[in-house]
Amino acid sequence: MDLLIALAAVVLLMIGLWAWQLRSGRADWVDAAWAACIGGLALAYALLGEGAVEKRLLVALVTGSWAFRLARHLAVRLAGHDQEDGRYQAMREHFGTRANAFFFVFFIGQALIAWLFALPAWVVANDPDSTLGPAVFAGLAIWAISLGGESLADRQLAAFRKDPSTRGQVCRRGLWRYSRHPNYFFEWLHWFSYPLLALGAPAQWLTWLGPVLMLLFLYRLTGIPYTEQQSLKSRGDAYREYQRTTSPFIPWPPRD
C-alpha cells in the first residue's frame, strides 16, 4: 500500500471526525480514533504489503491486537461520559473562539502521528524474509507481555474507580503500586516488538520510530504531564505523596 495514500486516508477520516465534533462538542473521541487509525493502517499493510505472508500475519496480530484493544478501551470510557474529557474542555477554554480552528489543526496532526506510528507495521509487512527466528519470537514475547500488562493495568484502574469506597483516593492497587503510569509503560514497551520482528529488513531503522516517539509523547508531551496535572487538581496532597513514593514510569518498588 502506498504510504501517501495511507496518509491521505487517515487525514480524510480525521477531517470527518473534526466536522462531527463541531455538532457533538466531543473532540475527545479523537483519542479512540487515533488508535483505530493505526490498527486500520496495519491491517491494510498486512493485506496489501509485498512482504512474506508470515510477516504480514504478524503485523495483523501484533499491531491489530494492540491498536484495537486500545481503541475499544478508550471508546468504552468515552461512551460512559456525557461530557467531553477535561483535557479537551481546557483546550476549548484556552482557545475560546479559535477553538474549532485549533482542533482542525490538532486533528490533522493526530492523523500524521497515527501514520508515523504505523510505519513500523509497514516495514514488517514489506519484509521479504519469511524466517521466524529467535528475534521474531523475542518480539512476540515483548508483544504478549506488553499487551497483558497494559490490559491488566487498565482493568485494575477501572475496578478501583468503580469502587465507591475509593472515591477521592489514589489508586495504589496491583501494578499501580509500582508505577504511576503502568499502562503507559507497557504501551511504550509494545513498540520494541517491531525492531525485532523486522530485524534485517529493508528500512528497519523506521521501526525505531515507535519506541522513540512513544517515549517522547508519553513522557514529555501528551501523556504523563497532562495526566498528572489533572490528578493533582483532583487528588491534591494525596497525589503529591503518590508522586514522592512511586516511580513515574518504569515499575519499581515504592519508596517509604
Rank of each mutant, 00 (worst) to 15 (best):
L41Y: 09
L48F: 15
A35L: 01
Q110A: 03
Q204K: 09
A60G: 10
A71Y: 01
G96V: 10
L41T: 03
L22P: 06
A79S: 14
A71Q: 01
I142S: 01
W143I: 00
L112E: 07
T227I: 15
D129N: 14
P248Y: 01
E93D: 12
A46T: 11
A101F: 13
A125Y: 05
A32S: 12
A118C: 11
D129I: 07
T246L: 06
T63K: 08
V59E: 03
A101P: 10
A60W: 03
F104P: 01
S234F: 08
I15N: 04
K55T: 10
P164G: 00
E150W: 01
W205F: 13
I145H: 08
L157Y: 05
S146F: 05
R177P: 02
L12S: 13
A111F: 04
G86T: 14
D129F: 02
G64Q: 09
P195T: 11
A144T: 05
I142Q: 00
A67C: 11
T131Y: 12
P195A: 11
F117L: 15
W20K: 14
Y178F: 15
L12V: 13
S24N: 04
A125R: 00
V76R: 14
S24H: 06
V11L: 14
A238K: 15
Q89W: 04
E228D: 07
A27S: 13
L57H: 13
W34V: 07
L13T: 14
L58S: 09
L215D: 09
L157A: 08
A32W: 02
T166E: 09
L152C: 04
L199N: 11
A35F: 09
W20G: 12
Y178P: 03
T131G: 12
A138L: 12
D163E: 08
N126F: 02
R255N: 10
Y226A: 15
W66E: 02
P253G: 03
Q21L: 12
E187Y: 00
S165T: 14
M1N: 13
I145L: 15
V30S: 08
L199K: 13
S231E: 06
F102V: 08
L7G: 09
A101K: 10
G174S: 04
V53K: 15
F217C: 11
Q169D: 13
W18N: 01
F160N: 01
L221H: 10
P248F: 06
T207Y: 05
F95S: 05
L189F: 08
F106A: 11
D2V: 14
Q89G: 13
L17T: 09
L189E: 05
M91R: 14
Y178M: 06
L47N: 12
A60Y: 00
A35K: 00
W143D: 06
